[in-house]
Write a protein that binds this DNA or RNA. Structure first.
Lengths: 211, 211
DNA sequence: AGACATCTTGATCGTCTGACTAACTTCGGC
DNA sequence: GCCGAAGTTAGTCAGACGATCAAGATGTCT
């Protein structure tokens, strides 16, 4: 067997864990299965990680980091509309390219909800916050109302989550392509109208959305 | 202890199962916990149901039935727009009124996805089909293009699912109220424009959406 | 009232699978 | 050629799972 440094092994275990969580759920993600998926054995897993919990902490970190990447890569766009569209597209394509990642995200969020609060919300909340920051950055230059900017990550998140659940349930890549376009058009229609309305009568504001 | 007919007991166990699944996930929904939640014991559970699987079959049936109710109650509305809006509102309010029901639905869908196909997809698919039928019924009178009618349940489903995930994660009823309004306005903006576009140039059609 | 079916209980069975570990072997750089 | 990092084998031990049972309590019909 090829000798691999621990750091690389750790990454293998994280990837394996994502795969296993997607296939068997959080509770079904046992050390045995993860080790098998990583083409190693349980002892090897405990050689790299002190405990299963330590590994899962890294899995959380990995997923959250991936989301940050995806969200922040929509930053360099010019207008609020274009940036928001890139944000939504990025999220949907992320799920589309790696259904395992998408499924694992849902599993993690479900699992997090079951625990009473705490760090559980982290993944979802960090993603929403990252999205909000991106929108604020581009929105400031354009003078768009903060109310609108706060709504954008929520709507983009809701739409991409809804897309993910449908896609993961049916697993139909053909249909998913069309749904991505449809979802994007829903978003565009709303945001265009919303930006227009906010510009013409900036005093009028909707109730704040939980960031 | 009061004597209760088996039929009623069964309903208690179904309710209890929904609650436990919401709190502990599918894998955490053990017979013991369900019995405890139903203020009974394991023997009683096996007196009403031959096996855990039999109980879960009833849980599936219950959830699917509840969705049918909610969806079909939006039927009597007059126009396509109003019916679609009632559909989305009904779904969101359903989750809002009973977070346990919403959480259990997500758990069931996640669980279904893990099994290879089969009856697993049932809950999600039945809901989508029921929504489609409602829209077709009202859409026929109005002469709305089938393409548009097929898109409506998908978009309503995606939006309500996205709303549910956010609401269930944060559990903030205050914020959820505002998000329901926001989500509804996204839907209205899109659908109004979509109906308008389909009416003025009915030849132009988007790629079909997986029903 | 009495008897039989219906309901309810606490305790227990056998089994399985979970995370984790000790002791051993092999490889590769110096 | 040796020494530590990487990897393996073969477990341990505890807990929880679904399911069942014998026995007691209660209702209902004659």
């Amino acid at each position: 067997m090829a000798r691999i440094p621990v750091a690389q092994r750790r990454r293998d275990f994280i990837d394996a864990a994502v795969e296993v969580i997607a296939t068997h759920g959080i509770d079904g993600a046992t050390t045995r299965r993860i080790a098998e998926q990583a083409q190693a054995n349980v002892a090897m897993l405990h050689y790299c990680y002190d405990s299963k919990e330590d590994l899962f902490a890294d899995v959380f970190e990995f997923v959250a980091g991936r989301f940050r990447e995806v969200i922040e890569q929509s930053d360099p766009h010019t207008t609020v509309l274009e940036t928001a569209q890139a944000l939504l597209r990025g999220l949907m394509e992320c799920y589309f390219e790696s259904p395992s990642f998408g499924a694992t995200t849902i599993e993690l969020i479900s699992w997090a909800r079951r625990q009473h609060g705490d760090r559980g919300i982290a993944v979802y909340d960090q993603a929403l916050q990252a999205g909000l920051e991106v929108m604020r950055r581009v929105g400031a230059e354009e003078g768009v109302s903060p109310d609108v900017l706060e709504e954008i990550p929520y709507v983009a998140g809701a739409l991409s989550d809804g897309f993910a659940i449908n896609f993961l349930t049916y697993g139909d890549r053909e249909a998913a392509r069309a749904q991505m376009d449809l979802t994007a058009s829903v978003f565009e229609t709303w945001l265009t109208a919303r930006l227009e309305a906010a510009r013409t009568k900036p005093a009028r504001r909707k109730r704040a959305v939980k960031a």
